[in-house]
């Protein structure tokens, strides 16, 4: 069973984000990048299936230099090899163009299963997965929280999350694409031998030119800080003081009655 997993390097969302002077990009020289958490669950799910059914787990990613360490992490977890689409301007590329580039880069690989995270924590679009399924010509299910492969490994039954806590049980034939929701598993930590092995695993690097990126149909005009709605009252003082203020204010508002 050969599995393709798409991953993305994203900044730690706990970071303080500041804007570059062009107001189109964030200042990222001081940010710590990591694997998108949805993708990490996708990698874990791929590895679990590989352990059961054999085959190869291939990682594909579009990004800049920060992406390499994220691919190495997937290798350290147990993935076999990677395809790295390298272009520093990838952030200006819309999701459908990204899907097209990923598809083109791996079109010689015929995966039985393609996994992506539902969405990237930075762009929050949830487009690449279903778009990629269309390009591969395979069925898909999004927001998957459980996967069961049939005994002959030809069909897959998944649970996908709908709104408000309802789950949809869906069956489809392989090959197919799933977008993975967090909570489906708890991703493993790379082991020390895993980290050692990761250094030797192959990354096929494809340098993309500006013309390879083409022209995106969705174009960012500006990036800005959210307008504060101005109603939050920030309580000042030490812990004891804010506690006294807060409980008094809540009592005044009769929330405990």
């Amino acid at each position: 069973m050969n599995i393709l997993v798409c991953v993305k390097a994203v900044p730690d969302m706990e970071s303080h984000f500041t804007l570059q002077s062009d107001s189109l990009h964030i200042e990222d020289s001081n940010l710590v990048y990591k694997m998108n958490s949805f993708d990490e669950c996708a990698v874990e799910e791929a590895l679990k299936m590989k352990e059961k059914n054999g085959g190869e787990v291939v990682i594909v990613s579009l990004g800049d230099d920060k992406t390499v360490q994220v691919m190495r992490k997937a290798f350290a977890m147990g993935a076999d090899r990677g395809v790295f689409l390298n272009n520093a301007s990838f952030k200006d590329t819309d999701a459908l163009t990204v899907a097209g580039l990923l598809h083109k880069a791996v079109s010689d690989f015929k995966p039985d299963l393609i996994l992506t995270g539902i969405q990237a924590e930075d762009d929050i679009q949830a487009q690449v997965g279903p778009a990629l399924a269309e390009l591969f010509g395979v069925p898909h299910a999004s927001v998957v929280v459980s996967v069961v492969l049939s005994e002959d490994a030809k069909k897959i039954k998944v649970k996908r999350e709908l709104e408000g806590g309802t789950l949809e049980v869906v069956e489809m034939s392989l090959p197919c694409l799933l977008t993975i929701q967090t909570g489906i598993n708890i991703p493993r930590y790379p082991s020390l031998p895993g980290i050692m092995k990761a250094k030797k695993k192959e990354i096929k690097e494809i340098k993309l030119s500006e013309s390879d990126l083409g022209s995106s149909k969705v174009e960012r005009v500006t990036l800005l800080e959210p307008q504060p709605e101005g109603k939050v009252e920030i309580l000042q003082g030490d812990a004891k003081s804010v506690a006294t203020q807060l409980i008094s204010k809540l009592k005044e508002r009769k929330v405990f009655n």
Binding site: P11, F17, I26, V218, E219, V221
Partner: peptide
Amino acid sequence: RQVYNGKLVEKVRVK
């Protein structure tokens, strides 16, 4: 729309 986990807002145009 929101980006960066809701910490920033982006404005986009569609061509």
